[in-house]
Design a protein around this nucleic acid. Sequence first.
DNA 1: CTGCGTCCAGTAAGCGCTTTCAAGAATTGA
DNA 2: TCAATTCTTGAAAGCGCTTACTGGACGCAG
Lengths: 371, 371
Amino acid sequence: MDSRGDSAPVTIYDVAERAGVSIATVSRVVNGHRSIRPDTQERVLRAIRELGFVPNSAARGLSSGSKKVIGLVFARLPTEDDLLELEEETLLFTDSVIRGAEYAAQSNGYSLLLHGTRRATAASAIASLTSATDGLILADQVLSERRVAPIARRVPVVLLAGSGRSRTAVTVRVDNRTSMGEMAEHLVLVHGKRRLAFLSGAPDSPDSEARASAFRETAEALGASVEPDEWWVGDWSSAGAVETVRRRLRRGGTLPDAIACASDSTAIGVQHALSAEGIQVPADVAVTGFDDIPLARHIAPALTTINQPIQRLGRVAVEALLAKINGVACARDIVLPTRLVVRASCGCAPNALQALDRWRSDGDALVEQPG
Amino acid sequence: MDSRGDSAPVTIYDVAERAGVSIATVSRVVNGHRSIRPDTQERVLRAIRELGFVPNSAARGLSSGSKKVIGLVFARLPTEDDLLELEEETLLFTDSVIRGAEYAAQSNGYSLLLHGTRRATAASAIASLTSATDGLILADQVLSERRVAPIARRVPVVLLAGSGRSRTAVTVRVDNRTSMGEMAEHLVLVHGKRRLAFLSGAPDSPDSEARASAFRETAEALGASVEPDEWWVGDWSSAGAVETVRRRLRRGGTLPDAIACASDSTAIGVQHALSAEGIQVPADVAVTGFDDIPLARHIAPALTTINQPIQRLGRVAVEALLAKINGVACARDIVLPTRLVVRASCGCAPNALQALDRWRSDGDALVEQPG
DNA sequence: CTGCGTCCAGTAAGCGCTTTCAAGAATTGA
DNA sequence: TCAATTCTTGAAAGCGCTTACTGGACGCAG
């Protein structure tokens, strides 16, 4: 029951014949070359219109090398199939990046070729994308630095949210350190927290590491203590965060009075795990996140977190890639700013007006910059 | 500063030469044809490995017609640029579809080519995708039925969330009517609501229309009244919903005692608009949604809504498309089931356990099927 | 030992488009 | 009016790969 149509597709030959010119001329008209006589052009355009001709992009790609497609590769969690539904929160980050990237691509006349991959098969999957695209955006650590190089030699590459230390590719990432330092200051100076903890994302993530070290360094410089990292290993997911908190509780001893998390998803998991044990947030323990996903302002208590411009990340990545593709100069390492968003989960009193506004405001009104 | 690599890409000719065979043989090995002598195959494979050969997919697409890419086209809101950030909730639907589609595509060895388009330019944008893909999924109404036909003649097409009445393309959609009828029953029979309203999505959406008519028909059959549709026109967005509620309030007269919305996003807008006016949900007015986005269970009061399997929608669409592409028989109109999820915003007492579980449960335990 | 069916692998014809090279047409200046 | 230019257009060579179509090598029945 193959119901694909059978009318043979219109090719450049059909147009040429109809317009009474050669295919070369049609090609020139289509691609807007100069030195075409106006009446010839008119005839060709009419033929194109009448026939409904659309250039075959595969052929175009083959002969000119430009496909008008950029590829975006992101990592899938190793445990895939059943988690598909559970990833809701975890993948919001990727979703936003995709949306931003798609928007920028589209605005520049490109399409976005999506490819989720597990790290195991990433290398070969990506290799086959190099010929289908004009350039590649590789999201956080889908490929180790070492394996990026050969790819980057074939096709322009932008690395998203990595360490920023690639020699072969442009890097686009957020400033993890500044705001995370401010977060530590806020917890210690404003709320007087002394016993802190930092719940990491995946242990090998450069983003998570940068956030952790900025938090720890600032906190310790201010005289607060931060529990050992080994006690607080997460995996970016809510479920993983719950598990980590449970483990920490079983370990016993005094709980920290503030837990900063590497992402909003994990912070939400922590909040739930704590309140399930009857521990009050923020009264007993403050909890903070990172990302500022839409959900963050809707949960109770509203999450104090760090806003990162996720969509912009995708957009900027595409723009940087297009610059590379077109041979335009462009920074080799682009760092986007982040911003502390103070809500209630850190212990700041919920503002009365906030309830009304928070669903549409971006949270700006609530930002406090402790100093 | 074009830093694209310069090592000439490895082609099938290089492999052939290195292995001492013809390019046809290499092609056969790559595509797993039989009747290749084992030692020849071994030699070719070695050459491929040593050279790091990856077939050029443009060339492949040109000569074989199969690109291993499927296109997904979705609508952008007309007002784009500034709304980009505000669309957070609105586009969750699309995001989920994309994720499901990408997953299914990837599982079958395909990539997903994304293309967001405004309706105005949709036709030409889509036309150019036909040659870049093996098949197209068109999301809700990016193209009018009439314009789908010529596209579907060129390439297999699956229509997502449409009316289900296409003659040229396979349709994948959800069962809007059954659950929406149950919702009306629930409001009228369980909660004794008599004066209802239905807040639509975009006025021309088949989904919204189906939901509205099912709701109205069931409610009226049970003796309840439903306010005129003209009073309750929305646009799928929270902001639009707020505006609609404000207009309704200015109009005066008794408010309905229950407002069913065509989506969760709009329901959330309604909840906020009402509580901003001091109207209690659900005590004064019950509010219900449709979609069951993750946010629905986190807001207060938790949203009573209708769960639709959004990711599955994407997945099934891809599977149907692949069936078409491969000439496998497949239903022409696929309808996925929906499910009433009763939470608190309709007036059902919040379950004590629910608070603990709702963030991970799918809501199944909370379903009530009114009889 | 001849004839025919099988296997394997090579030859070559495109797939639809871009682009170089070159030639005929048109224009210009002397 | 004729040569020197400048335009405009066509012919043809690929881009890298798939896939008939071919034909030699081999094996087996007659």
